[in-house]
Every structure is written in C-alpha cells, then in structure tokens.
Design a protein around this nucleic acid. Structure first.
Ligand SMILES: [Mn+2]
Ligand SMILES: [Mn+2]
Ligand SMILES: [Mn+2]
Ligand SMILES: [Mn+2]
Lengths: 219, 219
DNA sequence: TTTTGTATTTAAGCTTACTTAACTTTGTCT
DNA sequence: AGACAAAGTTAAGTAAGCTTAAATACAAAA
C-alpha cells in the first residue's frame, strides 16, 4: 500500500474519531491538502479494492479491512512518536512530523522490535491510545474535554491535541503537559474562556478553542 | 529530493567505490533494477540540476554537490543500520533492508539525535565507514580484501559485504563476524578457495567469491 | 413541486518514474 | 578506413497521484 493510501485511510479513521460524525469528501480533501476530485478518484479505487464501502455521494466509510489497515498505520505512528520522545529525546513538537513519514516505511518486524523496546506501551506521548496488533484500541474511559469540568473541580490532563505547530507552541508556552493536575477556577460564558490553576498555584486564562484540544479525567 | 534520486546518486557513489572504475549507465541500471533508458533520462535530468557532470555516452560522474548528497544518504543508511542493530537488536540480515527505506525519510534533525545516541560512531555494523556531516569519510587504512593475506598469516575481519540475503546467510553459517581474528592456513590456486582457522581452532574452507566480500587488517 | 446552492463526480490534462522499441554513437577488429 | 556489435539515446506509451474546469446529483428553501 502506498503513502497516499495509508494517509487516506488513516485520516478517515481519525476524522471520524475526532468529530464523532461522518467523514465527507470535502472534509477529507481539506485535511489531506488535496482537491475534492482527487478524493473521489481515490475513494472509488479503494472501494473497488474493498478497503472502503464506497457509495457515490455518500459519506466515506471504512470497511473492516480498511479500518484494520488504518489502525496499523496509526499504531506505527504512535509507537514511533513515543520512541522518538522517550528514547531519542526529541521534543513533542517534532515527533509528530517525523512519525508522519516513518509510519509508511516501517516493517511490521521493525515495529515489533520498537514495541518490545518500549515494553508494550498503551499511550503515545500526547496521550493518544496505541492500537494493538489485532486492532484493539486501549480504553480512554473517563477522558473528557476540559470544557466538561465544573468550576472549582480538579482534573488530570490525559491527552493534548498537537494539531499544528502553533497549538504545540501554546501548550509549551502555558507549560501544559500530560499528567499535570489542573484546577478549573472559572468558566466565562461570555466567550467560553477558562481560568486554570497550576500545581504551583500559578493562574492562567485559556481560550475555549484551545481548551477544546485538552482532555482530562476528573480527580 | 525523491527516493529515486537518492538511490540514483547513492549507487553511483557506491559502485565507483566498490569497483574502483567508472560507472556506466548499464551497470547502474542493473544495480537499480531499472532499464538503461530510465537511467539515461534521470542522468540528463540530474545533469541539468547540477548533481551530475553529465556528458552523453560518457561514464556517470557525480558533481561535488551530487557527491555531498550521496554521502548524506549513505550516512543516514549506515547510522540507521547501527541503531537498529545495537539499540533494537535486529539481526544483521534485516538491518540493511530497513535502512534502505528509512534513509529517504529521516530529517537531518532526527539523524543527529540518532548520531548523538550512538555517540558519534565511525563504522556501521558491517564495518562500512559512516560519512560525517561535512562529507568526510572515516579512514579504512590497512583494510584489504582477505585474498591479500598470505598463507599462515593472521588478520582481523574489519568489513563484511552483506550484498544479498544468500551471502548474509553464508556469513551466518560460517560464523564470520566483524572483529573476529582469522588465520589463513592455505590458499588453493586451483580455484582460489581459502582454508581458514577460527579463534576456537575450528577450520573451514571458503570460496574465492565469498572471500572477495571479506575485508580485514593484517595482525 | 420547482428552484437553487452546495457537494460530488466526471473529464481532460500534468508530472514523475518507469517501460519497450527504434535509432544513433562509439570503440574495436579486420 | 570500413564494418560491426555493444552501449547509450530518443521516442512513444503507461500508471499513480495529482490538478482545474465542466457537468451532475442532492437536499433544503421557496
Ligand atoms: Mn501524531
Ligand atoms: Mn503520514
Ligand atoms: Mn547497508
Ligand atoms: Mn534506498
């Protein structure tokens, strides 16, 4: 399977997870940075190959076979991210883009060497679950968006969505990291911004949009 | 630069090192597993880009810029091989094919993380020199083909050419490894085969053709 | 039910990296 | 020098993965 097909299948899976709704050609085109026509072409092709349940004008749906392939690519991506972070000490802002390339050029054999070296981890350094070889995804029970935490309640960061380098920079600047414990001081309904207290009792204010990329468990 | 260009430049460099003579289109085509016409096409293109000093009907010659690029790919290849071998414990028969892919999809930044982790090594696990960032190649002074060792003389293996999986298997079977000390007992001029004595005084006979892929220093 | 706007598909064309087949150059042998 | 075979080049064509532009389907509003 080619890099294009890998990324196509992977991003259908990821988009449906992230948005919770169905994935259209135009949304996928936007995500992949290609034209909608190119998505249609590829969708028809992958439909014929049994990786997609393709119906013209309908949302894009992975077949079982397609989902398995997507999860395998995601497994490689997230294992690489953890490896680059933990073993080689690369920063969280870089590991994603390296993994984006390596995920397509790593044999199953090499991947299992890395998995063993890391002692069969369940989560990548951003807190995303690493699918198993069989396609089972580690549970994220209790993990909710930061916006669902009540005022005066404490929570622990479980996942940070490093969607681009700007967001990554903001996490860095605020000092937000996985497993950090936060207290939600106040939610301003005016614009949705949230005031947080850090473990060292430093206080900061973050926008609703940034908060949408932070996930945590109630403490 | 694309995978095709990487491999094109790299193999011109490697062939000229291995054979000591000039690299023709047909030799390179054979090595890359593509048609001679495809080589001509690419050579003309890379000539225009200043990576090759291309003259129709003449041997293929890298420009300074082209040689630098080739050495950079080789550096990545060999650092990956050592990393996969030493850190992840992959076998010597596998590391080459993994590195063959990874070499094209590794940023300079990632490569330097690996270089640091390995503590700036000079040689890969097969004994090939790892070019430096500037393009300087570690010296192999005193390293000669096994055929140049006199009868009754001792030598230490410095480099094994894992040219394909069959040769790799033979090294494995005979138990030939880097830094092993051998004694050349007898050279049979009939067919060039060589009788060797191992450190544990086990004796074996190897063909001239296999010996051509073993390099060592006199002890 | 008809209109209309948006989403999607189809069509035609481009680039890269290849192929095979026909043609040209080169170096060698007589 | 002339002829020849081998090596290299040129020409024409293919497949993947894209593009833009034109055509079509769908679904919501009138
Ligand atoms: Mn990632
Ligand atoms: Mn990718
Ligand atoms: Mn190698
Ligand atoms: Mn390669």
């Amino acid at each position: 399977m080619s890099v294009s097909i890998d990324n196509f299948l992977k991003n259908i899976y990821l988009l449906s997870q992230e948005t919770g709704s169905s994935v259209t050609s135009s949304i996928l085109a936007e995500r992949l940075g290609i034209s909608v026509a190119a998505v249609t072409d590829m969708a028809r092709k992958l439909g014929r190959q049994g990786l997609l349940d393709y119906r013209p004008y309908r949302a894009l749906m992975l077949s079982d076979k397609g989902r398995k392939m997507a999860l395998k690519v995601i497994r490689k991506h997230r294992l690489w991210e953890l490896f680059l972070y933990r073993v080689l000490g690369m920063d969280l802002m870089s590991v994603h883009e390296e993994a984006e390339k390596l995920e397509h050029h790593t044999s199953d054999k090499l991947m299992e060497h890395i998995n063993r070296f890391l002692e069969h981890p369940d989560f990548d350094p951003h807190g995303d679950p690493i699918p198993g070889i069989g396609g089972n995804v580690p549970s994220e029970k209790g993990v909710v968006p930061l916006s669902e935490i009540e005022e005066q309640e404490k929570c622990k960061i479980k996942k940070l969505r490093y969607r681009d380098s700007e967001v990554s920079k903001m996490f860095e600047t605020f000092g937000l990291r996985k497993d950090m414990v936060l207290k939600v001081l106040k939610v301003y309904s005016f614009d949705g911004s949230i005031e947080l207290e850090f473990p060292d009792s430093k206080k900061v204010m973050i926008s609703e949009k940034l908060a949408d990329n932070i996930f945590c468990v109630k403490q």
